[in-house]
């Protein structure tokens, strides 16, 4: 990582709100590579990210915090490995209204296993108002089975407070966990 590059990476499944989450804290309009979905994919979201989302936050020191969002679909996993290089940590967003949210989480934990071990991760669960199950305890139970102690918070990706909470927890893990 270049000395002046500080980045956080958002990942998670299609429709979980990665682009929205980055937009809620970025001080520049999010640069995204979303494209119209052909009917090959299953989710009812109209557009999907195929390369990355990108946002920025200028810190008091003048340095920039780069915010990267990965494509959600596993087909684009080559981008995942590119984007996490030099990242401070990972923010995983899971759409609770999906067919198998815990399975989705499992895939991201597997794919980013080494990166999470080296740094840290937090999990934000979105759309819990429409889809209350699985509940938080089910997520924690699953994490416990995997021997992980990551925080899981129900969040609204549109809310700046929610996204800030995830980053605060991530930094707390990196510093004290």
């Amino acid at each position: 990582m270049r000395k002046d590059q500080i980045k956080l990476v958002f990942t998670g499944n299609m429709g979980a709100g990665k682009t929205t989450a980055i937009a809620s804290i970025s001080e520049i309009p999010v640069i995204n590579t979303d494209v119209l979905m052909s009917s090959g994919a299953s989710a009812d979201k109209e557009r999907t990210t195929v390369a990355m989302d990108y946002g920025e936050l200028t810190l008091g020191s003048g340095e920039k915090l780069f915010l990267y969002g990965t494509p959600g679909q596993q087909r684009f996993d080559y981008m995942w490995q590119i984007l996490i290089q030099g990242g401070l940590g990972l923010i995983i967003l899971i759409d609770n209204s999906g067919d198998d949210p815990i399975g989705d989480l499992a895939r991201y934990l597997d794919s980013f296993h080494d990166f999470i071990q080296e740094t840290g991760a937090v999990i934000g669960v979105t759309h819990t108002d429409d889809a209350p199950r699985p509940d938080l305890q089910m997520y924690y139970h699953y994490l416990q089975e995997r021997g992980l102690q990551l925080p899981v918070f129900p969040i609204d990706a549109r809310s700046r407070e929610s996204v800030v909470m995830l980053i605060q927890a991530l930094l707390a893990i990196l510093e004290y966990g």
Partner: peptide, 20 residues
């Protein structure tokens, strides 16, 4: 098939860069 997926990524990046 992998090249197809990566091609879409690259083309979208190209579109994003030229639009920027």
């Amino acid at each position: 098939e992998r090249l197809a997926t990566m091609g879409s990524t690259l083309m979208s990046l190209g579109d994003t860069i030229t639009a920027e």
